Simulated assay, not measured.
Amino acid sequence: MRGDKMYIKDGVCYAGELVPNIEVSSIKLLDSGMMLVDFSTGETRLFDVTSLLDKGSAFAPLADEKNQRTAKVTHGFVSWLDGDIDIAPETLYAESYKYSKEVYA
Results as ranks from 00 to 15, higher is better:
E90G: 14
M1A: 15
L30K: 04
F47H: 12
K101H: 12
R45D: 12
T91V: 10
V12G: 06
E43I: 01
V73M: 04
D84V: 11
S51E: 06
G3E: 12
Y97C: 14
M6V: 13
M34H: 00
E90I: 03
D84M: 10
D54S: 15
L81K: 10
S26G: 06
D84S: 14
K9G: 09
S40Y: 00
F59P: 03
F59Y: 15
K9S: 15
T70A: 03
S79F: 00
T41A: 01
L18W: 04
A88V: 14
Q68A: 04
T44Q: 15
L29F: 03
A58L: 09
I22K: 11
K55N: 14
K5W: 07
L36E: 03
S26E: 12
I85S: 09
S40W: 00
E95W: 11
V19A: 00
S40L: 02
L46T: 11
L46Q: 06
K98A: 15
K98H: 06
Y97L: 13
D48N: 09
E23W: 03
D64V: 08
I87M: 14
P89M: 06
A88R: 11
R2G: 07
P61I: 01
P20N: 13
A60V: 07
M34N: 00
I85C: 10
I27E: 04
E102N: 09
I8D: 12
E17W: 05
S96C: 09
